[in-house]
């Protein structure tokens, strides 16, 4: 049995507007920690499915959580999330969460949205081979400058996103990068053989900083490093990404350090 439910986009928008008025905010690169945003709640065949995120969704990495409850207390065997942007007909990478386990009381994952706009999150709750429910949540993704889509040739494209800390600060800041490869913009595979060289730079001051740690792979497609900002102001982070055969790309992200 497979059951579908669809939450109207307007309802989601209303929820987000209400939540947005509570003071959650973001700029291009930073996210102010916010109370859990409820992206949607629906009940399908007695299964209540609750989709939440820690902050308003935006282009780049967003962490979401899915919790399914049945009156009999049954535990789902597996939960999966698939993404679709209906207006463009493509998806985006779904990853493990960077800040904790994937499974616990709730299923947690990260989604690397590649474009702003309306997206559908197809959430499948599987209790057994013959017992599953599917809920489709319509969500709105805000714009940001955290994702770069790189088209190498007709066959291959890459998605690179920078995951900043909740707030940039003077001093050492952990920074993550996800690199995914795709050939059909629907399925994405993590890229694990990249070498990264990040360079913080303060264009207005004409200098960089010392004490940075170059990102290295820590999980599938995920690289972790540290950038050390020595002063407040406008910085850029340039990431020279190489593959074993040569340079893949050189990306620059803008950062405002308060």
């Amino acid at each position: 049995m497979k059951t579908y439910a669809f939450l109207p986009l307007n309802a989601i928008m209303i929820i987000m507007v209400i939540l947005g008025s509570t003071g959650c905010g973001s700029d291009n690169n930073t996210v102010t920690p916010a109370p859990t945003d409820v992206l949607g709640v629906t009940t399908v065949d007695g299964t209540t499915i609750r989709l939440t995120s820690g902050a308003p969704l935006r282009v780049g990495y967003s962490a979401i959580a899915v919790k399914a409850q049945r009156p009999d207390g049954a535990k789902p065997q597996k939960i999966t999330v698939r993404t679709v942007m209906p207006s463009h007909g493509h998806g985006c990478p779904v990853t493990k969460p960077i800040d904790g386990p994937m499974y616990g009381d709730t299923y947690r994952c990260g989604i690397i949205f590649g474009m702003p706009g309306s997206w559908q999150l197809h959430t499948t709750i599987r209790y057994s081979d013959s017992d599953s429910v599917v809920a489709v949540f319509a969500v709105t993704v805000d714009a940001s400058d955290l994702v770069r889509n790189i088209r190498v040739d007709d066959e291959r494209g890459y998605v690179v996103t920078m995951i900043p800390p909740p707030t940039w600060k003077i001093g050492a800041n952990d920074v993550h990068f996800y690199v995914y490869q795709t050939s059909d913009v629907r399925e994405y595979q993590p890229v694990d053989d990249c070498t990264m060289e990040i360079t913080p730079w303060m264009p207005s001051m004409g200098h960089g900083s010392v004490g940075n740690i170059q990102p290295t792979r820590i999980e599938d497609g995920l690289y972790k490093g540290s950038v050390n900002f020595s002063m407040s102001g406008a910085w850029t982070i340039t990431n020279l990404i190489s593959k074993p055969y040569g340079i893949l790309t050189n990306l620059t992200f803008d950062v405002a350090v308060p």
């Binding site: 600060k169 003077i170 001093g171 050492a172 900083s209 004490g211 740690i213 540290s226 050390n228 020595s230």
Partner: peptide, 13 residues
């Protein structure tokens, strides 16, 4: 100053 300590620690290793 915690933020300065963080920055200096990173710079000086």
């Amino acid at each position: 100053d915690d933020s300065f300590a963080s920055m200096l620690s990173a710079a000086a290793g």
